[in-house]
């Protein structure tokens, strides 16, 4: 059986790739994909610890996280749609009217 630390390393790598995407991408769709990567890194952790303890709570909770990610994407794409209508582009740096 694969030791848990390998899953945690994979999860950390996926999370950091997502973080890099959030910090560098200006296209809102890529931004959303990067956030999804970070959420899936959390899912890997949940499932790894579920395997470690022989308890299904982690896997069940990962299902809930997937559902919440779907809800987040639905709202996120709606926001991107409004962004495109108002600014003619989906560059997240264009929407600066609420910036302090």
């Amino acid at each position: 059986m694969v030791p848990v630390e390998y899953y945690l390393l994979l999860s950390s790598a996926v999370f950091c790739i997502g973080l890099y995407g959030v910090l560098t991408r200006r296209n809102a769709l890529y931004f959303l994909m990067s956030v999804e990567l970070m959420l899936n890194a959390a899912n890997i952790n949940l499932i790894a610890f579920s395997l470690m303890w022989g308890n299904l709570t982690g896997q069940t909770f990962a299902l809930f996280t997937i559902a919440l990610a779907a809800a987040e994407v639905a709202v996120g794409i709606g926001i991107i749609l409004v962004l495109y209508r108002n600014f003619g582009d989906i560059d997240v740096m264009d929407a600066a009217t609420m910036r302090w």
Partner: peptide
Amino acid sequence: ALDVALDSAVYL
């Protein structure tokens, strides 16, 4: 929460 998200997406 999923229902709220669906309504929000339609509203947006």
